[in-house]
Design a protein around this nucleic acid. Structure first.
Lengths: 359, 359
DNA sequence: TTGTAGGCGTTATCAA
DNA sequence: TTGATAACGCCTACAA
């Protein structure tokens, strides 16, 4: 097993940065006092504190993280693990939101975010090694697919970890944040049945992703509550093209459908293509719903009714929860679930609209 | 000045990980031999190497980065600096591409990517401190706005740095990668004039971003080459809504325009809105071009002719260039410019098409 | 080829 | 409140 750096990095020779020793000298105190002054100023006289503060700005002193980390066993950095083999999925604004939210949570901290993308199994092994190596104080995992066993792997390391999105393997009482996908799916069923549609179908997401499964579960529950039959279910891969193909089959087999719930806005776009290709209109013939309140939902030729969820808040929460768990190890915070909300647009307006002529 | 961590992170107490000492003991060699065996195996006998290798797997040994970094002065990590105050801009797939590309370049390396997003001036100061602190071996800066002075700041630190996108301040002979925005703008002018459009206008990007400025420069040059007048120029902020507003003004003032070049696909969408709101058609009345070959260009109600650029390659290149510069300090690689290519779609088809009836 | 010894910059312990 | 002093885990001359 090769534990050496595949490539080494040499450092550009520059003027060496001042050390704590230099700082203490300049401030006229001992290293210990300087150290204390720098770290919160516990048990240091105002005079000494002032002298050190002055020296810090004078010298442009910046503590050496490696040295500090070596003795404190803290790295002041956390990892964001993205076990996403597919580059296209990475394009999903979701990740931008997650990164932004976590960064926001870290803002008042000196904690840095290191990005761990593992696309291959090989990557995963390296990522896990990195995580176990104590190189970060905690991790946030964007959990998606059934296959990845990050939950168990990380539970075993004891590293403080927060999952964004309910992980598959719940046997390790992992801490996570999520949106109420079940509730969102139910909202969709309630809305479509509420506007009088009766022959409903859904284009669900991949069966190996919790978000997709939960939305489907909520959808079915909502239909049952409304006294409607389950109706046809087809699965697609959260992409526009995939959904278009799935919807074509769906429409061919069930030409009388009058309402479709697509489990994502991107998929709804594909479904809309298929509907129009079949010579039907939205919402005239078929009311269509998406999910996510993605930017495209608003700009679509027929703006999409969709489900919105507080993604940024969720990501911020994940960040702050991780910080808490790092500071208070052993505290196992409860999972946090954010509720979803319906956003009505033209694609489910009760009466057929002018835009239906688009078809 | 407070150089202390605003919040501290304590570590969960776990079984201490094996040290080099433990490894050496288990392998029956000295620390130095173990160290050498781990780092490339220079001057170590096959027997010793084998013993160490065995011990590594047996103990699950992982080198302590902090300790290693302390003595080697290398951190095996690089920073991606995103000086982007606007969250919405972060949603641009551009960043996903950049991150993916850099990660790809780092794949065979043990170098980690740390993300430095600085939205406020305060953030910038902290980011800069982090960079100067020697906490990373190099940095990649996504350079966008005129205001940020990262080029100078980083040049002063001597930290190996690569810019993605030509920086504004070129007085410090910074190394960068970019796409040929001038060439792309020229392509647009050539194409629109080539299909017979004569009264051309452009919705340019923000005047404080090099990409926007360069595209505009190329556009003007292309018009000149084609013997056409410069035509009207309006600026927008690379968003759909902003472009829609700008285009409304443009169309009101110049009702006879028959071709528009929007400096991004997202902006082209807004322009299309404005055109249709004005009761005109694309491409019947006005041929419309975008830029970026963004996913929306293909899915737009009238698919957009646009300019494509090898963004992933560019990002990968940035990563590998940085690694090179880190390994060979002082080598100042030449900037690399990737060429762009036209992608023809319906929005500039010569003859008016059925979709023109969309209006 | 191997091992010994010293030091990287910081924090933590403990006596003053 | 202060300041020696000893780690922290690793690499690297240097000597063997």
């Amino acid at each position: 097993m090769n534990t050496s750096p595949p490539r080494s990095l040499r450092h550009a020779a520059g003027r060496p940065s001042p050390t704590l020793e230099d700082l203490a000298l300049a401030a006229g105190v001992s290293r210990s006092t300087a150290s204390r002054a720098i770290n919160g100023g516990d048990r240091v006289s105002p005079a000494a504190q002032a002298a050190v503060d002055r020296a810090v700005v004078a010298l442009g002193y910046i503590p050496n993280r490696a040295a500090r980390s070596l003795v404190t066993r803290r790295t002041s950095s956390i990892a964001l693990v993205i076990p996403e083999p597919d580059v296209r999925v990475m394009m999903d604004p979701f990740f931008a939101v997650v990164i932004t939210g976590i960064t926001e949570a870290l803002r008042e901290t000196d904690v840095q975010l290191v990005l761990l993308m593992s696309r291959t199994d090989d990557d995963s092994a390296r990522t896990l090694r990195y995580l176990r190596g104590g190189h970060v104080d905690g991790a946030i995992v964007v959990s998606h697919h059934e296959a990845d066993s990050w939950a168990r792997s990380l539970a075993e390391t004891g590293l403080p970890t927060i999952f964004i999105g309910r992980p598959w393997d719940m046997t390790f009482d992992v801490t996570y944040v999520d949106t109420d996908n079940v509730g969102g799916g139910k909202l969709a069923a309630q809305h479509l049945s509420g506007i009088g549609r009766r022959r409903l179908a859904t284009v669900a997401g991949p069966a190996d992703m919790t978000a997709a499964v939960d939305r489907l579960r909520g959808w079915k529950a909502g239909l049952a509550e409304a006294g409607l039959p389950e109706g046809p279910v087809v699965h697609a891969d959260f992409t526009t093209d995939g959904a278009a193909a799935a919807a074509r089959l769906l429409l061919a087999e069930h030409p009388d459908i009058d309402g479709i719930f697509a489990a994502s806005d991107l998929m709804a776009l594909g479904v809309m293509e298929a509907i129009q290709a079949a010579g039907k209109t939205v919402p005239g013939d078929i009311a269509l719903m998406g999910y996510d309140n993605h930017a495209v939902a608003e700009t679509a030729s027929t703006p999409l009714t969709t489900i919105t969820q507080p993604m940024v808040e969720m990501a911020v929460k994940a960040g702050s929860m991780l910080l808490e768990e790092i500071e208070a190890p052993g505290s196992h915070p409860e999972p946090v679930i954010y509720s979803t909300r319906l956003v009505e647009r033209e694609s489910t307006s009760v009466a057929p609209t002018a835009s239906a002529a688009n078809a």
